[in-house]
Amino acid sequence: MKIISAAQVQQHLSFKHLIPLLEQAFTQPFTMPQRQVFHLDESHSRDAFALLPSWNNEVIGTKAFTYFPDNNADEGLHSLYSKIMLFKRTTGEPLALVDGTSVTYWRTAAISALASKLLSNQGSEHLVLFGTGNLAPYLIKAHLSVRPLNKITVVARSEEKAISLIQSMQNDYPDVFFSTCDNIEQSVKTADIICCATASGEPLFDGNHLKPGAHVDCLGNHNNDKRECDTTTVTRARVYVDSLVNNLAEAGELLLPMAEGAFQQEDIIAELAELCRNPAKGRQDKDEITLFKSVGTAISDLVTANYVFQQLS
């Protein structure tokens, strides 16, 4: 059995290969039970443990992760630890133990960009990114690989972190204009794509400000009582999800409008797998607003981890 490190994951992945690989995987048969998230106590602590199982015709896998948001980085502790275990589908033999944190960054960004490839207008040029966490550079690179973006606006609580992110990106993409956000309303009004990757519990922008043809991607929230976008955004958009069962358990972006009576499950157009199999279910015209809500899919972990394993075998 191979032990695959984060460095090996980084060495063997690229969005050029991963995004088409995931798109193809979602058109093929797979099984993905509802993921299990366990809150470790009943206090105000957000500490959690989760299991994400899935399998296809080639491999079986499960990702296990812990989330301890109060861990002290100064003590060398991370808030997230994760491992993915792979087994051979035909015999059940263990194949590999793969670093799950690095895989999660890659697959989350790849799924976000895949949804944009299927839903945003092909000529999209302006991306507004909410969030400067570890996932942010992956998201920028992934979205640049599928759309001709020439302007990226970073919205952050910390201007220092936004500037640091921009500086880390500028050398690799000299033809893209990067900037921090001075005015959220104006940035949203001109955005072709809005990507939300934050821990915010409240809507990040007013959905009334979305321009015709905008594509919104919300991936930071996994709580049924919190949300990154408001009810107006949801009701103005054609709505898509990565996994229906997981979103109906965890996505406040959809569950809160449903509780308000403004939205219902039947208003969800398609899951990502259905959209990959039948792209005609996607955007219907250039002025339509689209929304993709993701909470994470085990099959994307499985496919990404197995790809790295295959490259190393």
Rank of each mutant, 00 (worst) to 15 (best):
46 R>N: 12
151 K>R: 14
159 E>P: 01
117 K>S: 12
68 F>R: 12
175 D>S: 15
216 V>E: 01
306 N>P: 10
95 L>M: 11
150 N>I: 10
101 T>P: 04
61 G>N: 06
172 D>T: 12
258 M>D: 07
236 R>K: 15
16 K>H: 13
140 I>L: 09
250 E>S: 06
261 G>I: 04
294 S>Q: 11
178 F>A: 06
268 I>Y: 01
64 A>P: 05
45 S>F: 07
266 E>G: 08
5 S>W: 06
270 A>K: 02
171 N>L: 11
176 V>D: 10
106 W>K: 04
274 E>S: 15
67 Y>I: 13
162 A>M: 03
112 S>F: 00
279 P>T: 12
60 I>Y: 01
283 R>N: 02
231 T>V: 12
274 E>I: 04
153 T>F: 00
262 A>L: 01
187 S>I: 03
97 L>A: 13
269 I>N: 02
183 N>W: 10
308 V>T: 11
307 Y>L: 08
292 F>K: 00
221 N>P: 04
67 Y>A: 15
239 V>C: 00
306 N>Y: 15
216 V>C: 03
164 S>N: 09
46 R>G: 10
258 M>E: 09
146 V>N: 05
87 F>I: 11
61 G>I: 05
133 G>I: 00
246 N>Q: 14
35 R>F: 05
45 S>R: 10
254 L>G: 02
50 A>D: 03
10 Q>G: 11
260 E>P: 01
27 T>G: 08
60 I>G: 03
312 L>N: 14
207 G>Q: 00
240 Y>G: 03
224 N>G: 04
211 K>S: 09
1 M>T: 08
